[in-house]
Amino acid sequence: MSRGTCAYMDPSALRYNLQRVRTLAPGARIWAVVKADGYGHGAVQAAQALHQADGFAVATLAEAQTLRDAGINAPILLLEGTLGPLQALDAVRLGCDTVVHQTEQLTCLETMADRLGQQRIWLKVDTGMHRLGISPGQVPDFVKRIQAIRPLQPVNLMTHFASADEPEAPFTSTQIARFNALARALPGVHLCLANSAGVMAWPESHADWVRPGIMLYGASPGFGKTGLELGLKPAMTLTAPVIALRHIQAGERVGYGARWQAERESRIATLAIGYGDGYPRHAPDNTPVWLSGQRVPLVGKVSMDMLTVDVTDVPQVQLGDSAELWGEHLSVDEVASHIGTIGYELLTRVSPRVDKQWPTD
């Protein structure tokens, strides 16, 4: 039985944000990224809400298997490719497109060329992020080898941006220029560059495919703005009930380590959510929480199952009232900024014991 701590999901927000992608990149097809359990929202439900995307991108074979087990038959792209022949065969069995970002992966695919079926290969090029990808100088040889095992399919080329969330920084332009120089030597190649930040700020990167992730869920990819400020709609509203109210005197302290001290007579509300639910333990005092129609400050250290907020100025708060940790009224990006992290982390850290509720048709 739920203790009342809940993440409410809004599929209409996902569809709205997908349409924003369509509007910003009207000529591109869309890989909707649903890795990390749909950024904490639930991969299957997110994919179902995003069914108008052209395909789904995941990080692992297990994530692809989850989608297939749920009856999702759309194209799936394995963003990190596979490791070894057994994984490569599983990717074929699941009907996944796969990324090749190193020599060993391509060699493996060459040994099983007759079993690849309709699987498309996406060659990932390192244009400067230095995480995954072959060097630009390796591209001609890799393309020749891919064409040998996939002669009837166009070459698919992709890269990943290091700082597309900083539109004033020149490095993304450098990456785009490096990538386009390779593409010009490969007529008919299919291109994929833009992540969420690329979709929003770098129209010259939209190409044939885009692969938005965080913006689909209504959170910001950067730019010093929240998702709400960027015109996105949050798909998750995380709530927890008030389970205790108490009055304390000026000078009294709250929570582990007695970190917070009341400067006046205060009224403290305890909420049924803590780091066991994914709310960060290191959240500082004054991190905002939305309760009874206004912001109230977190006070004291977050514990495993509970946190405390100062509701002295909100006398109408009662036991059982629902507080919003982030969502419709309070952007996850703003909360993340107070905590010293990013919205991505907060969304993906929501633990399995939080009841995730999707509306039923």
Rank of each mutant, 00 (worst) to 15 (best):
G274E: 02
P315Q: 08
A272E: 09
V309Q: 02
V299R: 03
S322Y: 03
T312K: 00
G293R: 07
D277C: 11
S303K: 05
D310L: 01
G320P: 11
W290L: 07
A272K: 02
V317W: 09
T312G: 02
T312F: 00
G300F: 06
V314R: 05
K301D: 15
G274D: 03
V317P: 07
P280V: 07
L291S: 04
L298D: 00
L291M: 11
N286C: 10
D277S: 13
G320N: 09
A323H: 02
L319W: 12
A283D: 04
V299Y: 01
G276Q: 11
G276S: 12
A269V: 00
V314I: 10
V314Y: 09
Y275P: 09
V309C: 03
A269W: 00
P288E: 08
K301W: 11
L307N: 03
V289H: 01
P297H: 07
I268S: 00
D285L: 03
T287F: 03
V299L: 01
H282S: 15
A283V: 06
R295A: 13
D321F: 06
G276F: 06
V311F: 07
Y275M: 08
Y275W: 15
Q318A: 13
R281Y: 07
R281H: 13
L319T: 07
N286K: 13
D277V: 06
L291Q: 04
A323L: 02
W290I: 05
M306V: 14
M304V: 10
L319I: 11
G278C: 09
D285V: 05
V317T: 14
T312S: 11
L298C: 01
S292P: 03
R281P: 01
S303I: 08
P280K: 07
V317R: 06
D321H: 11
R281D: 05
S303G: 15
